[in-house]
Simulated assay, not measured.
Amino acid sequence: MAASMQLINLTPFRVHSTSIPKHHSRPFTVRCSSSAKSYNITLLPGDGIGPEVISVAKNVLNLAGSLEGIEFKFKEMPMGGAALDLTGVPLPEETLSTAKQSDAVLLGAIGGYKWDKNEKYLKPETGLLQLRAGLKVFANLRPASVLPQVCQS
């Protein structure tokens, strides 16, 4: 299910001025517009700080969804070191299958010192590579700030 992104001007929403390109004069937010009002999201909390970050991200999505009339259905699955400890593999087949059937995947941190001495095929990061291959994606998208030097003509 694809959702298009559009910029919408809203007065109450504030964005730090260094993250807004100079050609935008007013604060803005990004909204997803789609005919769908419900999305299935696979949560992969992973390791270390991942579970804490995913928990907060889930709360944020629920709040944003409630403001926009969108329902998010979450399914948490093991991956990385947590999956190794639970199932013996860094990316269980059930996790990959669930991710493929979802509208989106929210991935936490993967790996840690505990698994550093494992064989390569039993490292948490191997699960990340398998996930990327299984979903036919090449990168994780992360928020970024545009530096003023980059915006200058």
Rank of each mutant, 00 (worst) to 15 (best):
C151R: 08
S55Q: 07
L84M: 10
K120G: 13
L128H: 10
R132V: 01
A133F: 02
A82V: 05
I8G: 00
N62T: 04
K22M: 08
A99K: 01
L63E: 01
G46W: 04
K114L: 15
G46V: 06
S4G: 02
L44Q: 02
K100A: 09
R142C: 05
S153P: 14
D116R: 09
P78E: 01
L7C: 01
K114C: 12
K22N: 12
N40P: 00
Y113W: 13
M79N: 00
V15L: 14
Q6E: 15
Q101I: 04
L107C: 06
I8E: 06
T95C: 03
H16E: 15
C151Y: 03
S17F: 07
I20W: 11
S102E: 10
K123G: 02
Q101D: 15
L147Q: 14
N40L: 10
K100N: 06
S38M: 05
G134W: 00
R14K: 15
A82I: 03
K37G: 09
L147M: 14
S4F: 14
V146E: 11
K37V: 02
S34R: 10
K123S: 07
A139H: 08
R26C: 04
A36V: 03
V15N: 14
K73S: 08
L107M: 06
M79T: 06
E52F: 13
T42P: 06
A109T: 12
G127N: 10
L107A: 04
G88K: 03
S19E: 11
L129G: 12
D47F: 11
H16Q: 12
V53M: 14
A64S: 04
C32S: 09
R31G: 00
F74V: 03
V89G: 00
L106D: 10
Q6F: 15
V146R: 13
